[in-house]
Design a protein around this nucleic acid. Structure first.
Ligand SMILES: [Mn+2]
Ligand SMILES: [Mn+2]
Ligand SMILES: [Zn+2]
Ligand SMILES: [Zn+2]
Lengths: 136, 136
DNA sequence: AATTAAATGCAACAATGTTGCGTTTCTGAC
DNA sequence: GTCAGAAACGCAACATTGTTGCATTTAATT
């Protein structure tokens, strides 16, 4: 069990109110949360720019990973330290009804995918869309 | 060889200047184009809202399919009538350097992917990211 | 307690996309 | 060709997401 404070420390991020709050929320959440989602959930005063910068910092350090939903808005999910050794290459499920984003266990092999000559593959993002259990 | 006019007719879309121009551009393009890309390429006067609505109309009718790039902006690509019988379920390559979006031949089977109990799979989107041949 | 790099707050801005509404234009029927 | 109706367009106004610059505050270290 690693505390929020410890996680921040391990990534050389200063321990601030908003970072603690955001990280706590996302560790507990079972889904990806957008800037807007977090703004509504956070029970404190903060500048919206600070939240954007917080999310960027977390993404850069690998604490969170970003998923672009079908509307083009970013959602962030906590990167499980054990699960994601292979650098968050897992697939995501996106509910077409409520917009919920869930991390799946499924991962994909980059090798198997053919690209045109001269193209270099680096990462793969897979989004499975459909209806989540709540909306079903 | 189907002309632009014929394509519009087949989808019950009125034949207008901007629709002809947009569709011509996208049929010739070997990559997905954004609203901005098209705005720059189009050599005519038009309202930006009209272009948004044109792209929506084309997407709804299946003439184009939308790809959300890593910045969250929409790009549109012509849906090849023969290639995409299985409703544009092919993968896309996205260049991390220049942002270019290319349709790949690769398709994926929805069956193989496991989702939590109660979730219903409908479609799958695969994005392979890396460096394109121009940027290499 | 002093130092300093990092983080924050604020203001201003840009890009993308949407909605409402009045006007124009395409198309099909006559 | 004329006409009518539906579809598309142009314009204005707005919402949301995200970025940048800069002055101020704060967390962590000594
Ligand atoms: Mn995930
Ligand atoms: Mn495509
Ligand atoms: Zn749902
Ligand atoms: Zn490129």
């Amino acid at each position: 069990m690693t505390s929020v404070e410890e996680i921040l420390q391990q990534h050389n991020l200063k321990n601030t109110r908003i970072r603690q709050a955001v990280l706590s929320l996302l560790i507990d959440a079972d889904e990806g949360l957008s800037h807007q989602d977090l703004s509504k959930s956070l029970d404190m005063d903060f500048d919206r720019v600070t939240l954007f910068r917080t999310l960027h910092a977390f993404e850069e350090s690998g604490i969170l990973h970003k998923i672009i939903d079908p509307n083009g808005t970013a959602k962030y999910a906590y990167t499980l330290p054990d699960k994601d050794k292979n650098k968050h290459s897992h697939a995501h499920f996106i509910c077409l009804n409520c917009g919920q984003v869930v991390c799946l266990d499924e991962t994909f092999l980059l090798n198997e995918i053919k690209v045109p000559k001269g193209f270099i593959k680096q990462t793969i993002d897979v989004q499975v869309k459909g209806i989540c259990v709540k909306c079903n």
